[in-house]
Amino acid sequence: MFQTILFAIDITREARSAAEVVADLVKIHNSKLVILSVVETSAEGVMSSTEQVAKLLTSAKSFLSDRGINAETIEKEGMPPFVICDVADEINADLIVMGCRGLGLVEDSASDSVTIRVINLAPCPVLVVP
C-alpha cells in the first residue's frame, strides 16, 4: 500500500518517537524509506545549522539501520512545510510521517504549525505521530 514513505524529522522528542512507527510501517509494507530534514531559513537567515541537520540524519539512519531498514536521506534548505511537500511530490511518496507536539492544532496559532501546513499542502496522506 505504501511503496514510498517520507519521514520528515527535526530535533524534537516527537520525531524520535515517530521513528518507531516509521520502522513498523516500512517493515509491514516493505516500503522504500526517505528521511528528510530541513535547514530552516527565514528573513534573518539560517535558523538551524547544516551540521546539526547532518548529525540528525546520520542518527536517524543509524537507528533505522539497527532495525534492518535501509533508508535514503535528504537534506534541504527552506521553509519546512513547503520543502516537505515538494520532496513528497518529487519522490512520489505514498505517505508522509512526522511527529507533532500537539500544540496549536486546534488553537488560533494552528496556521503557524508546520504539521497543519503539511496536512493542508501534502500531495499524499500524512500520518502525524504525537
Results as ranks from 00 to 15, higher is better:
63 F>C: 03
102 G>S: 04
47 M>D: 05
103 L>C: 02
71 A>I: 04
46 V>F: 12
66 D>K: 15
55 K>G: 13
49 S>D: 03
78 G>D: 09
99 G>R: 01
51 E>A: 15
105 L>H: 07
114 V>Y: 02
53 V>L: 11
96 I>C: 06
64 L>G: 05
105 L>N: 08
85 C>A: 14
54 A>Q: 13
83 V>M: 08
108 D>G: 09
108 D>K: 09
101 R>D: 15
79 M>F: 13
74 I>D: 06
90 E>F: 09
66 D>N: 15
94 D>N: 00
114 V>F: 09
43 A>E: 08
57 L>D: 11
102 G>R: 00
50 T>M: 10
111 S>A: 15
65 S>M: 12
108 D>P: 00
85 C>M: 11
56 L>S: 01
111 S>E: 13
76 K>E: 15
79 M>C: 02
49 S>Q: 07
107 E>V: 05
68 G>N: 05
91 I>H: 05
61 K>V: 07
100 C>V: 05
82 F>H: 15
110 A>V: 06
80 P>M: 09
76 K>N: 10
95 L>E: 02
101 R>G: 14
73 T>Y: 03
67 R>P: 01
78 G>W: 07
54 A>L: 03
107 E>A: 14
102 G>W: 04
66 D>G: 15
81 P>E: 02
81 P>K: 04
57 L>S: 12
69 I>R: 01
57 L>Y: 11
84 I>S: 05
77 E>K: 12
103 L>G: 00
107 E>R: 12
79 M>T: 12
80 P>A: 13
79 M>W: 00
43 A>R: 12
110 A>Y: 10
46 V>I: 10
60 A>E: 10
94 D>K: 00
45 G>Y: 07
50 T>F: 10
85 C>Y: 09
56 L>V: 02
43 A>L: 12
67 R>N: 09
52 Q>Y: 12
76 K>R: 13
104 G>L: 03
74 I>V: 10
84 I>V: 14
100 C>R: 03
43 A>W: 09
102 G>A: 05
48 S>E: 13
55 K>Q: 15
114 V>Q: 02
64 L>P: 04
45 G>Q: 08
89 D>C: 07
48 S>T: 12
112 D>V: 05
97 V>R: 00
108 D>M: 11
97 V>E: 00
65 S>K: 11
114 V>E: 01
60 A>M: 11
57 L>W: 09
64 L>H: 01
87 V>C: 04
70 N>V: 11
111 S>V: 15
66 D>T: 15
50 T>W: 03
63 F>V: 02
66 D>M: 11
90 E>W: 11
57 L>T: 02
110 A>K: 09
83 V>H: 03
82 F>T: 13
43 A>I: 08
103 L>V: 07
44 E>P: 00
52 Q>L: 14
85 C>W: 03
93 A>C: 07
90 E>G: 03
44 E>Y: 14
99 G>W: 00
43 A>G: 12
62 S>F: 09
60 A>K: 02
114 V>A: 10
72 E>V: 03
108 D>Y: 10
64 L>M: 07
78 G>F: 09
55 K>W: 13
